[in-house]
Design a protein around this nucleic acid. Structure first.
Lengths: 114, 114
DNA sequence: GTTGGTACTGACAAAGTTGTCAGTGGAGGG
DNA sequence: CCCTCCACTGACAACTTTGTCAGTACCAAC
């Protein structure tokens, strides 16, 4: 029975990881932690990421309750994304992850595998 | 230029995530945080996981410096894995992740996406 | 009236991860 | 002798995630 990481697992670590897991989700959240942004701004601020992936990640993040989607309802469309109240509870966790990651990066840089 | 999450990325979040990312790594680390274990003990303690995946994850964790591999050198082989000094620095991060995951699990359980 | 911008979708290919299956070598039990 | 256990490997299939490409509807500028 192949188990996808995406389906809800009873393991809290997996549950948390399933929310931030996605090639660009960490980066998206990072950008958004400075304030709301439009889809196209976000896309331009992360040039290596394609629009397709941005939108897919954005939708998952909204579905998970981490982001809020504000649609002005105008034509041409203007959609802004911001971190929800619930999403802000994730930010300190991300900071902890980031702090460890910085140390790890130094470690692997100094004679690790890369 | 397709970018794998496995190669060293300059983003600290990605760097940290690349260490714990793997279908069973969180669980393995969790088990090991109670003390060293033999390969087969570990395998039996996580029945849904195959031996192949266990060994692959174990090797990556050892390569990343998170785990230590003690080989008794006997026949039949007896190999014990334990969390390294460096690996222990990861445990509090995992605990933070886990705490958030627990909250998230409650949230999705109570009317989330199911 | 063609082009460019906006946010987004669908189909599909490429790449990455996980699962399945068979096999290694030697000790011990029936 | 045959089978099981041990830690582990290799080949390969199945599945998941990412990337590429084309297209939607509408407005504004040229």
């Amino acid at each position: 029975m192949p188990v996808s990481k995406k389906e809800i697992s009873p393991c809290p670590i997996d549950a948390m990881l399933s929310v931030v897991d996605g090639r660009w989700k960490g980066t998206i959240l990072w950008r958004l932690s400075d304030g709301p942004m439009r889809t196209s701004e976000l896309r331009r601020s992360i040039p290596e990421m394609t629009e397709r992936m941005l939108i897919r990640h954005l939708q998952e993040l909204v579905r998970d309750g981490i982001l809020l989607r504000h649609d002005e309802g105008t034509v041409p469309p203007c959609v802004r994304y911001s971190i929800s109240k619930y999403g802000w509870t994730l930010v300190p966790v991300l900071e902890t992850i980031c702090a460890w990651g910085r140390v790890h990066l130094k470690r692997v840089g100094a004679g690790g595998r890369g």
